[in-house]
Nucleic acid binder design. Structure first.
Lengths: 363, 363
DNA sequence: CTGTTAGCGCGTTCAA
DNA sequence: TTGAACGCGCTAACAG
């Protein structure tokens, strides 16, 4: 994405000012809370260390007055639980690992949010990392997360290296895969089906009378979600009795500019195209802007549908027909399944949360 | 944001299928890697535990052949470092805490990405949480992160409760604040100045000849970044010799729909307005769509500028004049400053990374 | 209800 | 270059 050529830049401020150093910048601040151990609290309260431990973690097992004395001592000393030591001693961790393909992508952020909310309500925390869509990177991240002794792992991906799979199988913790319905899940899966959703949208377009429906996605070779969407599209074409036209099937790099480019190309190479299904990223948005620029009426000249129901597509001109995927819910349910399993409950192993088609002005 | 009334929903699939339970769903998988301790590797390799520890962490201190034997044993046993125990024993942690106002907001995601990348390159990990713009929630999160013994903390916020500040001051770890230039930083700060940026954009609009410049932001009472932007706007008005008109100053909820709503209101109540500076969130985008819908020419009838240089504003019709904030860089530099401090270097205490104005078609 | 004892798995520090 | 003892700060299990 280059800066548009009609852009003039005004550099207003562009310097780094090292503010005058703080007196204590070297880092010799008094760790008045850092070094306080549970035993210090116990001494301050005049009780044993175990009483402090109980007062903090199982208050019911301690008498009300003792509890008060202990909590006062905690406040006074500025004690902060050391959950590293707690994890080691109890062999029970309270952090969950999450690996997403890209931190920046708002779609994953929604799932992340759902996960974080549910976990926090149960006192668990989240370690987040992104694989940059690389399986090798994912493998490395799985390793470091296991080394952190996470109590569970959630992956927004269903393809993994053999070694990553082995590590996870051996880890003895709940593993959740999402982002698609895996053929052979490692442990549990919570998602929607990309193939089903893609097929449904294609059929929806066919039902509305479109005959030459183009399909645009991200790279199908390295991205399972993209290839599943292509599969769904092709299946739908067949069942709708439309013929497959290779010129109408495209792959695009992520990004708005890329969507505009593909749109422009399709219109030039195959003017007979009457609908385009953008099955990924923000491609549909770029196409929409390109159409505005060129004066192509949507849906008069060309119809546009998108895979994800991005907020911007709900308010654009025209509003864009989309699939609505339960991304937030996928996050919540994933976290819940993980919690259930941790509590020994029989958590559901597979969960297909489905999707909806949102018909709007663009088709 | 309600679903537009012209939307018809087609529920295509909406069920949860509990797939037939896995044979071992109860969770009795063999933890063949989980229970492997360093001592087991040592036994397998016929060396002492310490030799294994060295072979893994300081390979140079071990002879080449011993190293090979140990690494083979590690592979054979499926050993995974227990960094919980390592942290406790060495009193040195390798996770950094990050608290952002909202995980879903892509603006924060960019900074998060910059942080994650730099940290990973140094073998550190990230614990992420969002405060939901609540200072109380932030205080709680600071507590839990300190209890995890993070080796550093990054906050995308410069306002904190007194107790949160005290905790952080006492923690004895590097603390980085960002999102604005704090008047009295806890430790280090890496950011741009919201007031400066807002002022610069307002002056930019004035210089281009706009006389009645409206200002729209998020809630200035609870959001320091918003109030700083308002301050910058007011200062710029004064220095440009424009008078302040209360009807031209608005606050809006976050979201595209909200931006459209404010745009519509401003045009109705004060038709003389000739430019609007949307100082937050995706408000400018909503305004843009509203203008498209109403047929108001941009910038002929009304000019629009935005605070953040969102990708969508770079490709919209028209392209929107924005401030470009170094969000990715803020993340990278924050992480770097933290790393420097951890290594005992004299890291810069304050860093003002500045900003640029990107003049585009909308003004 | 409270205290005591014995580790959790590893790194530090020393000695060999 | 390698090994042995000790302890990191806390919890589990039991005793009182």
């Amino acid at each position: 994405m280059k800066t548009p050529s009609n852009t003039s830049r005004q550099r207003v401020i562009r310097d780094e000012k090292d503010a005058s150093a703080r007196a204590d910048a070297g880092g010799k601040r008094r760790p008045s809370g850092q070094g306080v151990r549970m035993i210090d609290v116990a001494d301050a309260a005049g009780v044993s260390l175990m009483t402090v431990s109980r007062a903090l973690r199982q208050p019911d097992l301690v008498s009300a007055e003792t509890r008060k004395i202990v909590l006062d001592a905690v406040r006074k000393t500025g004690y902060v639980t050391n959950s590293v030591a707690a994890t080691l001693a109890s062999n029970r961790s309270n952090v969950v690992g999450l690996i997403v393909p890209s931190i920046q992508n708002s779609l994953y952020a929604e799932t992340t949010k759902g996960i974080a909310d549910v976990l926090r309500a149960s006192g668990l925390h989240l370690i987040l990392a992104d694989s940059g869509n690389s399986l090798e990177e994912e493998e490395a991240l799985v390793g470091t997360m296991l080394s952190q002794r996470v109590c569970g792992l959630i992956l927004h991906n269903t393809d993994h290296t053999a070694r990553a799979v082995t590590s996870m199988e051996n880890a003895g913790i709940p593993i959740i895969e999402t982002g698609d319905i895996p053929a052979d899940p490692i442990d549990m899966a919570v998602s929607y089906s990309n193939a089903e959703a893609s097929s449904a949208m294609t059929l929806h377009l066919a039902r509305r009378g479109y005959k030459r429906i183009a399909f645009v996605s991200l790279d199908t070779k390295t991205n399972r979600r993209a290839s599943e969407r292509l599969r769904g599209y092709l299946a739908a074409l067949k069942s709708a009795g439309l013929r497959k036209d290779p010129r109408l099937i495209r792959e695009a790099a992520p990004g708005i500019a890329s969507g505009a480019e593909v749109m422009s190309q399709l219109m030039k190479v195959t003017p007979a195209v009457d609908a385009i299904f953008f099955a990924g990223d923000v491609l549909a948005l770029g196409a929409l802007f390109e159409a505005q620029r060129q004066g192509w009426k949507i849906p008069g000249r060309i119809a546009i549908a998108s895979f994800d129901d991005l907020p911007v597509l709900q308010h654009s001109v025209p509003r864009v027909t989309c699939l609505r995927l339960p991304r937030l819910d996928v996050g919540r349910r994933s976290a819940q399944a993980l919690l259930d399993r941790l509590q020994g409950l029989d958590a559901p192993v597979h969960l297909n949360l489905g999707f909806e088609i949102i018909q709007r002005e663009s088709t």
